[in-house]
Design a protein around this nucleic acid. Structure first.
Lengths: 233, 233
DNA sequence: AAAGATAATATGTGCGTACATATTATTTCT
DNA sequence: AGAAATAATATGTACGCACATATTATCTTT
């Protein structure tokens, strides 16, 4: 009972996914080779290839040359996480965005920043702290170090008008970055800035970005109580 | 000064990315059409198409039929987040995994679970709480509701031996899911289970998964202090 | 001039072929 | 028997062509 002609890769994708979901093909099972599937489904190998490639990148299949394709034994699901500019995230919630520069100083970095960005202790850096507000209420506190050597133009940026977050996105593209999510108790100072109580649990995002092997910036983004980061899978 | 022959889509991908990074093509700019790029780079349109499609899915480009391709104005970077089975996450850190079922009861769900999964208040559900340990220390506390109607086989699972987390991954594939990350202060009970102090800031992951329109399971995963979730971009 | 029909166009995708590449299986050699 | 060379094979990808589709631009019609 061959399935009716599946002429596009989407339908092949869905059909294969259906067989995985119905456990016709179980985790660890080897599935038919591309040419067989193509014949079975009445389409070209290229079409099957496209569908299977997509499914592999989604984590449903493991593929290896010569060894063939099998259903992923331990489906490591890959959630997609959008990392927008803070302004857009707030405006996307239908709230009014505001921003205030708290502090900006050109100086040498503390040890933990050196370690993060792999820079020397005498590097020329810009240290910026700022507060992002949603509907007038503190939303996120940003504590950022930017390498002046890697991004000299940052010195000309008017950081009272545009946040370092947004300026960097527009002017300093990066090739890779790390993000860490965690939870911390608010310190006295942090609580004061975010207008909450010391000890309150806060969502923390730590980001470091790189242009090839050059560290660009390292930021500590501390969100006001109640913040939830969503992701779909 | 055309670039030397770029015969594979990876090199086209990298070359386009280079032009974006060097701001030869700036955010918002329209880039040459596929046929032009193909000619310029000395390869087939299909090859360019593959590269640009990839770049669009990575968030660097916006593409629309007839309108052409342009550099994304607000590069919403998409971080990829791996959601493995807890056991593999712990073993991946080189730690010894252990697991204990705390509690298991078949009953009707409380209102918040009904809302999450879109089920009625008289649904047949399984409520499971368990503790995952790394090197003998509490690592994550799992509080999960599973729909018996959607996954009757769960009743036969030996949840003392295999965690609901892992059983579900292997036996109840889902079509979509939501994940929320946040930070909460430990309650008395949670602090006792995770062997920490009440009020300690804890990283919380709330997951709900669906098979088509049927809610499968909703889980609240509370991590021990110090946990950081990593993601690359 | 506004509305609706029509043409033009860039991307989206399918197909068949050819060859590349990684990996496994087999054979040959010592 | 064990190691090394060789063959076989499934996926990976490049190419050229054709046509589909969405969207914009243009031309009619009223």
């Amino acid at each position: 009972m061959n399935s009716p002609q599946q002429k596009n890769w989407q339908s092949v994708h869905d059909e294969v996914l259906r067989r995985i979901h119905t456990r016709e093909w179980k985790p660890g099972d080897q599935i038919p080779k591309e040419v067989e599937l193509a014949e079975q489904l009445g389409c070209a190998r290229a079409t099957v290839n496209r569908a299977l490639r997509e499914l592999a990148s989604e984590g449903f299949l493991d593929r290896r040359r010569k060894a063939g394709t099998r259903v992923a034994a331990h489906p490591v699901r890959r959630a997609k996480l959008d990392i927008p500019v803070i302004r857009l995230e707030i405006e996307g919630r239908g709230q009014k965005y505001a921003y205030g520069l708290l502090f900006s100083e050109r100086r040498t970095p503390p040890p933990e920043i050196c370690a993060n960005l792999c820079v020397t202790a005498d590097s020329d850096m810009l240290h910026i702290t700022s507060l992002h507000l949603a509907d007038g209420k503190p939303f996120m506190f940003e504590d950022r170090w930017v390498s002046v050597a890697a991004t000299p133009a940052i010195l000309e940026a008017d950081l009272d008008e545009i946040s370092a977050n947004e300026w960097l996105v527009l002017h300093a593209p990066y090739t890779r970055g790390d993000i860490y999510f965690s939870a911390v108790n608010a310190t006295e100072a942090e609580a004061r800035i975010l207008r909450t109580d010391p000890g309150t649990s806060l969502f923390l995002m730590e980001r470091t970005t790189w242009e090839n092997e050059t560290g660009i910036t390292s930021a500590r983004l501390l969100f006001a109580p109640g913040y939830r980061k969503h992701s779909a899978i």
